[in-house]
């Protein structure tokens, strides 16, 4: 079959168009691949540049902010010490983890190792539901239901305390901890499980001696991610923690964690002013802390993945 020169030309021009289109699409897609790096870098740059005014101010500066214990933007000179807010974040997050870690890991063990298949399916749906409920709704439950109940239970002065906020945050951290831990235990090869059972170990002995150690890095990562979620959560602490500026380690009094400071004051500051900039310093602090927590979780998860990859 001889091809007419016209058909040949037609074919080669189509090939050229196709190659060009292919190159353009490939370029666009590769560019999108960079989007995550670009956004993360942009966040860091914008936080830092907006924080710079407060950081470089001779009367404020990072050292005074991190060591000072009073936050009075309207005094002269203005005071932006926020160590009490950091402690408030620790109080609330501590309560949340103290509740969510043991309960979450235990629930994950039950779902992965003991629950019958049907119950497992239901449990997973319920956990997905818990993860999907917006944080403002959890805040609502804290304000109207959990806070008042805890006030009566512990005889607290107020319903809105570090303890109340911590308990609500625990509910929000639970889905993260349970689903990632359960995943880690579930992905332990079943030969290990059967090997242990065949040696005459009970299910519980197998879980304790084989499954949990094998899944330990995944479990650790789930705790870190739950921690990240609790530190960064805003609406719950804004609504439930009670917004007290006092420096204290008490759990039964009100608190004002870092996220609540930003959310509570950002709407009332002069944009571009010193107070505005100081809020970005708080934001930058949050960013760095959660970045480190997530980095730790990610590195550990990567190790876990590498372990079962063959």
């Amino acid at each position: 079959m001889s091809e007419s020169s016209e058909a040949k030309l037609d074919r080669s021009s189509r090939a050229a168009t196709r190659r060009a289109a292919e190159a353009v699409v490939g370029r666009l897609i590769s560019l999108s691949g960079w989007s995550a790096i670009a956004v993360l870098t942009a966040i860091a740059v914008f936080l830092a540049s907006n924080a710079w005014k407060a950081l470089s101010d001779p009367q404020v500066g990072l050292i005074r902010m991190l060591t000072g214990t009073s936050w009075y933007p309207t005094s002269t000179p203005p005071l932006y010490g926020f160590i009490q807010y950091i402690i408030a974040s620790l109080r609330v997050t501590g309560v949340a983890l103290a509740i969510a870690v043991p309960i979450g890991i235990a629930a994950a063990i039950y779902i992965s190792e003991f629950a019958p298949a049907r119950l497992k399916g239901i449990a997973k749906s319920v956990i997905e539901f818990m993860a999907a409920v917006p944080s403002v709704v959890y805040g609502l439950m804290g304000v109207y239901v959990l806070g008042p109940a805890l006030k009566d239970l512990f005889g607290m002065q107020s319903a809105l305390t570090a303890l109340s906020a911590g308990v609500v945050l625990a509910f929000m951290a639970l889905p993260t901890i349970i689903s990632i831990s359960e995943d880690a235990m579930h992905s332990v090869p079943s030969e290990l499980r059967q090997g242990s059972l065949a040696l005459g170990n009970t299910h519980w002995q197998t879980t304790r001696k084989v499954i949990v150690p094998a899944a330990s890095s995944g479990i650790f990562a789930s705790v870190m991610l739950g921690l990240g979620r609790a530190i960064g959560e805003t609406m719950v602490v804004l609504m439930v923690a009670g917004n007290s500026m006092e420096l204290t380690w008490s759990l039964t009094t009100s608190a004002r964690p870092l996220t609540a400071v930003i959310a509570g004051e950002m709407g009332e500051v002069v944009q571009g002013g010193l107070h505005y900039s100081a809020l970005f310093v708080v934001g930058l602090t949050l960013f760095v802390v959660t970045f480190l927590v997530n980095l730790a979780a990610d590195l550990v998860l990567e190790r876990q993945r590498a372990r079962w990859r063959r």
């Binding site: 993360l40 942009a42 966040i43 914008f46 936080l47 907006n50 944080s135 991610l225 990240g228 979620r229 530190i231 960064g232 959560e233 805003t234 996220t259 930003i262 959310a263 950002m266 809020l279 970005f280 934001g283 949050l286 960013f287 959660t290 970045f291 927590v293 997530n294 979780a297």
Partner: peptide, 10 residues
Amino acid sequence: GVPSIVYGLF
């Protein structure tokens, strides 16, 4: 893992 309030600031 970046807190949502930080996205708000950004």
